[in-house]
Structure formats: structure tokens, C-alpha cells
Amino acid sequence: MSNFPMPFIHCVIMTLLIVSFSSLAKRPEFQLRLNNHLFYPAEIEIPENTKVKLIIHNQDNTPEEFDSFDLNREKVIFPKKKAIIFIGPLLPGRYDFFGEFNPNSAQGTIIVVPNKLAPDNTESEKNASKSPSNSAVVKEINHVN
């Protein structure tokens, strides 16, 4: 049997670990509500090449599962609870998401915009802590049912 080059693997794993946790700067936060199986707002603009924290408040009495192939995310949101989803860094474009349990109604889009057009959510973060429904989002569209 041959010896496995484990010192090399050790170095690789340690490097990955150090890099993984080396960047822990505070990330921009954006808030969403899930109410009556609809996301509010249904569209959010975030800056390009930036990791952001999405906080989703499920105000319904049933669980929902945030799902997005575009964003490569799946997350269960328990009723009357909030869930945190980290997304990005992303290139400019539209990234759709939906609720797996109510895919026909619970739909939304993350719109990644170039940095010069991106919203400054510093003030919005303060508001978001006061009222999730009036949160850090820049653009809210009305649902048409």
C-alpha cells in the first residue's frame, strides 16, 4: 500500500478553513415578509459582488420552504419565525425564488444591480429592526391576485 499525501491534504484543509472564516465583516441585511403565502416585497435589489443577509419573517401559521435554483438555496421557514439566508456574491441579473409549499403564490426575485446603482441600506437597516414590513428593501411591487 502506498502512503497517502496527507500533509498536502492537511495544508489544503487548513487553508480552506482559514480562508472560510477570515472574512466576517458585517453584511448588508435585507428583510422580507411572508404573509398569506406571498413574499413582501416580491422584488429586492441588492448590490453586485456582495454577500448579503436575507431575513425572512414568516407571518403565516404554516411553514414554508424558500427555494431557488438560481441562488442555490433551500431553507425551511417555520410559522411565526424568521429564517436567515446568506446569498451572494452575485453578478448582475435576476434570480428567482419561490416557496415550495405554495409555489403558485409565493414567488419573488432578487435583482442584482451594479454597485453604482445599488441601494444604500444603512438607513433601511435601522427601519427594518423597527418594522420588518417596512424594511430594507428598495423596491416593493404589489401582488396582483
Partner: peptide
């Protein structure tokens, strides 16, 4: 907690590496 997490992962990684450096590959 991030520090706890980082410490835990480092301990696991170092432990694995120490053991790995003295073992042969599987059969």
C-alpha cells in the same frame, strides 16, 4: 459562535491530519 466554530474545525482538522499522516490508504 464563530470563534467556537473555527476552533472546533481547526481541532478536528489537526486531529485528522495527525492521524492521516500515519495511516495507509484503504483497501
Amino acid at each position: 459562535n464563530c470563534r467556537v466554530l473555527t476552533g472546533l474545525l481547526r481541532i478536528i482538522s489537526i486531529s485528522l491530519a495527525i492521524i492521516f499522516s500515519h495511516v495507509v490508504v484503504a483497501d
